[in-house]
């Protein structure tokens, strides 16, 4: 449209191209991480986290390309909903995974939750017996 070499359109196109490529790279990171990390908990990192940035970059690219101010609130709302829901789903899957012991203990350098869980389990076991006795 504009024959000048450094028009605003070109700069916007270049920036959104970079955003899209890096955003796609983040999706690739998620895929590689899913395949290569050893257990469920570390896979959750790869599956959920790079998408926060990846989606941010892709939505920004969409916003830049649409050339319309009114599309930005929708994109911001979409990203905020993602920010609100990603940690919840990651937490629920991670918690269920920890409780059903889908993890490799030998790949943990320390586990401060295990002692707490065992303590709680012992306590519950003893109160159950008390209730049964009484």
């Amino acid at each position: 449209m504009n024959p000048e070499p450094f028009s605003a359109d070109m700069v916007i196109d270049a920036v959104s191209a970079v955003f899209m490529v890096v955003g796609a790279l983040m999706s690739l990171a998620a895929a590689v991480g899913l395949l290569r990390f050893p257990d469920l908990l570390s896979r959750m990192h790869a599956a959920t986290k790079p998408q926060v940035l990846g989606l941010f970059l892709l939505l920004s690219a969409v916003g830049l390309q649409m050339r319309s101010l009114w599309v930005w609130p929708v994109l911001v709302v979409a990203w905020i909903f993602q920010l609100l829901t990603v940690p919840v789903s990651a937490h629920m899957v991670g918690r269920a995974g920890y409780r059903t012991k889908h993890l490799h203990r030998e790949r943990l350098s320390s586990d401060e939750l295990e002692a707490v869980v065992q303590h709680a389990a012992r306590k519950r076991g003893s109160t159950d017996e008390e209730q049964r006795g009484g």
């Binding site: 990171a29 590689v32 991480g33 290569r36 990390f37 050893p38 908990l41 570390s42 790869a46 920890y98 790949r107 943990l108 350098s109 320390s110 586990d111 401060e112 939750l113 295990e114 707490v116």
Partner: peptide, 14 residues
């Protein structure tokens, strides 16, 4: 993910 992959060490901390 690319460099360490399955050899990565993690921890659960309180």
């Amino acid at each position: 993910a690319v460099a360490k992959g399955p050899r990565v060490l993690s921890a659960v901390i309180a």
